[in-house]
Design a protein around this nucleic acid. Structure first.
Lengths: 123, 123
DNA sequence: TTCTGTTATGTGTAAAATACACATAGGTGA
DNA sequence: TCACCTATGTGTATTTTACACATAACAGAA
């Protein structure tokens, strides 16, 4: 397929936002490093190999820059130092707001998919 | 929020694909012009003002280039000429395949949203 | 007859998001 | 000392999305 240029979000699920939510969710219980978080993606049904580690790290740094997380270096333990992330109050608020919007988007997609499914069934 | 660079689709709903599906769905019943299709977006719960007309036209041309639609000029009737689109067999197949994938993605999102909702509830 | 509004189709390009590949470095054990 | 595992990060090309603008036929009013 050739190049597509389309435009217009406001409608849906954006990957970066989904991953924001996933990491925030995973950090609700315990602090964790980027490496650990990447591995824990399978807990929410996402194949970790879909998310190259470089991308996860960049995302986490952005989340920290946006105040959703804070990090500190952990040098104890074996192996190289880890940057361990912890969720902030602002991060929790973000997750709550994301949930509200995601539920609305889910509803829109359900309606659309339902329409199309019914239309294709009675062909 | 500052610039985010994230990566990794394979996971979800891409706007252009959703609009492909919506236009194909709308064209299942009747042929229509880009202008008409833009207005009919409200039929599937999408506010037409979300999709600037320039974007809809470009998308339809792309869909034709990809063999999902065919068009012809309609000069009869009043007002300027219309490019009227009709769905192809390939377009129908695309829509069917989209539906299967969309249902899977919907399921993934439902699971994720459910997890997060339950976690936030018992805070 | 020209000016304004409506229908109708398109293009150019800046900005943002995504994909892919590469770079760095500490520690462990053969 | 070399390979391997853990761990974090950067560079940049490509693709997607957003926003603004350009074109043109026709209708009706001034």
């Amino acid at each position: 397929m050739r190049n597509k240029k389309v435009g217009c979000a406001k409608f849906g699920f954006k990957m970066s936002n989904i991953l924001y939510a996933v990491f925030l969710y995973l950090l609700m219980d315990n602090s964790a490093s980027g490496y650990e978080l990447s591995e824990e993606l399978s807990k929410v049904g996402i194949d970790p190999s879909y998310i190259p580690s470089g991308i996860a790290y960049r995302l986490l740094r952005d989340m920290e820059a946006n105040g959703l997380l804070v990090s500190k270096w952990e040098t104890s333990g074996s192996g190289p130092a880890k940057r361990v992330y912890k969720i902030t109050e602002s991060g929790k608020k973000y997750l709550e707001a994301w949930l509200v919007e995601a539920k609305r988007n889910l509803q829109t997609m359900e309606n659309l998919i339902g329409l199309i499914e019914r239309r294709l069934k009675d062909e």
